[in-house]
Design a protein around this nucleic acid. Structure first.
Lengths: 143, 143
DNA sequence: GTCTCTGCAAAGCATTTGCAACTGC
DNA sequence: GCAGTTGCAAATGCTTTGCAGAGAC
């Protein structure tokens, strides 16, 4: 974490535990889920501190903040670019095994007045657990 | 709007004006922008009514609710599927002239435990106005 | 010893909701 | 005239922020 020094920042115990928890975890937790995980090790930490550090760690490129459409932020200990899928029923988020489409922005070159910088792709679906629950009573009505 | 009857719903003046305002507008306004546009015609309407109707009109398929990553909801009077681009500086949202990739979900078939239903693709960029302002001092430092 | 960081609590902001009165149909 | 809808205001849920004291280096 050479970057901390460069920015006159410190590696506090709180910051470290938050980073460790995220790195060991591939469930894309929300801030309050991270809060309760970290609190097992640091019972006096505050939610504000969790938010502040998640923002800083994102800026340093150590983690990713996932702002999936219309929902609570989630955080990803894997800082590399990849796509996600969200369960429309329970909100669970997983990685998707699809290589980032690096050329996608080029397809729009000259077709928009914007300077394109990046893109976000998010799949919507139903996770196995929720699919199973929906099976018995498909849709809402039943005979 | 045959759908209203089918759902035991009424075409109130408020609902109608909200729909008209959105149909005449391609700027993808936020709820409070719609609120202030509608208030010119219906000064006593409340923000709650605007939200309630935007939700209903979305469910009826008359408009679209855009839940772009990490920002306020925006609303689109065009109910047909299409992608959007958002200015990372001012938040402006425009349509993107790229045909929806109907086959994208198929690429993941068998590669995820989810049942995939849909996808959201959103481009991030800089609109002409903001690009112009950034020109003088590119990035943050200058030689 | 300095200056960043923390815990706490309050504020902020977009959105939702409970309720009595109102109004489409 | 009934049930869906409205305006109002309060509540909600997530996130950010001000501040004085604590702690990293």
């Amino acid at each position: 974490m050479q970057q901390l020094k460069r920015n006159n920042m410190r590696m506090t115990r709180q910051r470290q535990v938050i980073l460790e928890v995220l790195r060991k975890n591939n469930t894309h937790p929300t801030a309050d889920e991270i809060y309760s995980m970290v609190r097992r090790r640091l019972p006096r930490i505050s939610l504000g501190t969790v938010y502040r550090n998640l923002e800083i760690l994102t800026e340093l490129g150590e983690i990713q903040t996932l702002e999936l459409s219309g929902h609570q932020k989630r955080f990803d200990g894997n800082p590399n670019k990849h796509y996600h899928i969200r369960c429309m029923s329970c909100g669970r988020v997983d990685d998707v095994p699809l290589a980032p489409m690096a050329q996608l922005e080029n397809q729009l070159y000259g077709a928009t007045v914007y300077t394109i910088v990046d893109h976000r792709l998010e799949f919507i679906g139903m996770c196995p657990e929720c699919s199973r629950q929906q099976q018995p009573d498909k849709h809402e009505a039943q005979p």
